[in-house]
Simulated scan of single mutants.
Amino acid sequence: MVTIGEFSRLTHVSVRTLRRYHETELLVPASVDASTGYRHYGVEQIPTAQVIHRLRQLDVPLTDVRRILGSSDPGTRATLVADHLARLEAELDRTRAAVTSLRRLLAPEPAPVHVELRAVAGAEVAAVEDDVAIDDVLTWYAGAMAELDAVVPEPAGRPGGVYDNALFEQGAGHVLVHLPTTDAPRRGRVHPVTLPGVELAVATHVGAHDDIDVTYGEVGSWLVRNALAVAGPIRETYLVGPRDTPEASAWRTEIGWPVFGVGVAPGGTGGTDRSGRTHGTRRSAD
C-alpha cells in the first residue's frame, strides 16, 4: 500500500486528478482512513491509473472509460478504443481542413483566381443520384462513383457532379454524379441521364477539397462584380482527383456556376484576373 502522493509519483498522475478519479468512481483507493480521510493505493492499481489517464488525455467520455475498464473482453475494449480514435481522426481532418482554408484566406497576397465563361452543350451520361445531407456527401460520392466505375469501364470523359442549391442553403439537397458515355447502362443505381446545355462561369480549384469553399467564394465574388445572376445547380468536373492519384496537390476540380443571359458563343470563353476585368469572346444575349 502507498499513499496518494507516492502513487502520484509512481503513475505521473497528479494528486488532484487522482482525487477526481475517486470522486467519479473511476479509480477508488484500496483503502481510506476513516479518521483522517487519507487515501492509500495498491501497487496493482498502477496500470489502471495509467490507462485511465491515457484515455482521458484522448478525451474518451467517462461512460466509455468505465465500459473499457469494466470489460474483461479484450475485443470489446479494443473496439471501444478504436471507435473513439476514429472520431478523433475525423475531428482532426476537420481541423486540418479549417486550418488550410484559414491560411489561404489570410494570405497577404492570395493567388489570383481565373474565371472563364463557357457554353457547355447537353450531354448523355451515366448517373447515380439521390437526396443527400451535406455531411454525408463525401461518403455517398465515394460509393456512387465506385458503382459508376464498375459499370462504365471506358467513360467518354471526366467524371462530374451536379449539386442542388438546397445542399448548401439547407444542408441537404439533390446530388447527381456522372460519367460521360454514349451508351449508359441501367444497372443498380446507375441509369442514363441527359444533362441540359448550360452557360457556366468556370474556375479551377487546385489541390485537396479542404479549402474548395474559398474557390467557391472567389467565383461568387467575380459573379457579383460582373453583375451576373446565378441560375441552376452548381456543376463540378473532376479533371484530376483521388481516382487518379493519391497526391492531393495534383488534384484539379472545375467549379461551374450556371449564369443567366451571358450569351457565350459556342466554344467561346471569357476570363478575368482578380481585378474583375473581363476578356475573351462573347456573343450578345438574345
Rank of each mutant, 00 (worst) to 15 (best):
H40A: 09
G263C: 02
D136V: 01
T194C: 05
V151P: 04
V198C: 04
G268F: 01
P180K: 13
V51I: 08
R9A: 14
L195W: 05
P61S: 11
L148Y: 12
V125M: 10
R56G: 06
D213V: 14
P112D: 14
A285H: 12
P180T: 08
G5N: 15
A172Q: 10
L80I: 09
S31Y: 07
T215F: 13
L176T: 10
T204A: 13
R235G: 08
L195A: 07
D131Y: 01
S31F: 04
V177W: 15
A227V: 09
D244N: 10
R103V: 12
D135M: 03
I4L: 07
R118E: 10
G160S: 14
T3K: 13
E147Y: 06
V198R: 04
E154R: 05
V240H: 09
R9P: 04
T281Q: 06
D33W: 14
R283K: 06
A34F: 09
L106K: 14
A250G: 13
V259M: 01
P159I: 01
V13L: 08
A34S: 12
R9M: 11
G143R: 06
A86G: 11
R118F: 06
R158T: 09
Y238G: 08
V193H: 13
A231V: 00
P110A: 10
A133K: 08
V115M: 03
D136G: 00
A227Y: 13
G217Q: 14
R158F: 04
A184M: 10
W257M: 04
T3N: 11
A82S: 14
V115P: 00
S8D: 08
T269L: 13
D286S: 06
R54D: 05
V43A: 03
P110G: 10
H12T: 09
L88Q: 15
V240A: 09
V13R: 02
E25L: 05
R54K: 02
V28E: 02
W257A: 02
S221R: 15
L228Q: 10
A121Y: 04
